[in-house]
């Protein structure tokens, strides 16, 4: 059964879209990340134009993050003050990101920029995660191995505007979360991701937040950044396909249920290793598409109405 997507202006099989939503929802249930970094490339693979894929993923992300945050909030695992400060940077970053998106669209290079961003980020992240999880698995076999220091003091802790974050038990410069929010905001606008897979490690390793409050807080600010991106994309580029986002959400909800149950049965480092493999596979596929001789040397870009 095909469904016509009014903004993407293509007909796609509704079960494929539900399947993609379910697969990404499953992963986000297992790994506790939004899954936007897999959603956008998958949509591009099945034939959704890259700009529409990016903008509609952001829209889908709003819904996915709301349901995630509510779950964490009920357990009291959300640092609202930290989320708010991350958000200040995030909104500013996403405005710059949308501007860059429109600029590259005009130059006819947006598809390339999106693909390149994905290859670089997914490649680096996949390698880092793969190496780290392998080490963790090896360390488990040798229980006598050295433990990591709990807190390292770097120049980052010397920045001004020190602020206390009670829930996260931190006393750090507000510039750190603002900067982090900004960087993730730019990427989320250009790549259609919430940035959970960047935000979560940065919150743990750079800010030093306790792991219990990280996913909920990250998701909280993602709601607002993704909502901002959706609004701006709809306004400047007319690329948000709400029908597509809704179909993906329906699939995502079902997938997340199974994912959460499956996730509790696997061990942390095994999970991370698995995720690293998936991330690397997506990066490799995208890199392959960029370097292989294209079927058509010429493409036509119609001026959007």
């Amino acid at each position: 059964m095909d469904v016509y997507l009014p903004i993407a202006e293509v007909s796609l099989n509704v079960f494929i879209l539900l399947g993609i939503g379910a697969a990404v929802g499953f992963l986000s249930g297992v790994f506790g990340v939004g899954g936007g970094f897999l959603l956008t490339p998958l949509l591009i693979f099945v034939g959704v134009p890259a700009p529409v894929a990016v903008a509609s993923s952001a829209n889908q992300l709003v819904g996915a993050s709301v349901s995630g945050v509510l779950a964490h909030w009920r357990r009291g695992h959300v640092d609202f003050k930290m989320g708010f400060i991350l958000l200040i940077g995030g909104i500013a970053g996403s405005i710059l990101g949308i501007y860059l998106f429109a600029l590259f669209s005009r130059l006819g290079q947006i598809e390339l920029v999106i693909s390149l961003c994905y290859v670089v980020l997914l490649g680096v992240l996949g390698l880092m995660m793969g190496v780290e999880s392998l080490r963790a698995m090896l360390r488990q076999r040798r229980p006598g191995a050295a433990r990591r220091k709990l807190h390292r003091h770097t120049w980052l802790h010397g920045l001004p505007l020190k602020t206390r974050f009670r829930k996260s038990q931190l006393y750090i410069s507000a510039l750190l979360p603002i900067g982090l929010g900004f960087a993730v905001g730019v990427l989320s606008a250009v790549m259609g991701i919430g940035g959970g897979f960047l935000m979560v490690p940065a919150m743990i390793y750079t800010l030093g937040m306790p792991t219990t409050v990280v996913p909920g807080t990250s998701l909280l600010q993602i709601i607002f950044v993704a909502a901002n991106v959706t609004m701006l994309q709809a306004f400047t580029n007319h690329t948000v396909d709400a029908v597509l986002a809704l179909v993906l959400l329906v699939g995502g909800v079902i997938g997340a249920q199974f994912g959460t149950r499956f996730g509790t049965r696997l061990r942390g480092e095994q999970l991370r290793f698995l995720l690293a493999l998936i991330v690397l596979a997506v990066a490799a596929q995208l890199a392959h598409d960029l370097t292989v001789h294209p079927k058509d040397l010429f493409v036509i870009l119609m001026d959007r109405r």
């Binding site: 709301v66 509510l70 709601i223 909502a227 609004m231 709400a242 959400l249 329906v250 909800v253």
Partner: peptide, 22 residues
């Protein structure tokens, strides 16, 4: 465009909230 974007966000929020109920 702006109203469309707002509605798209609201629909997503509602869908997310509904999804969390179970």
């Amino acid at each position: 465009a702006l109203a469309y974007g707002a509605i798209a966000v609201v629909i997503a929020v509602m869908a997310g909230w509904l999804a969390s109920l179970p």
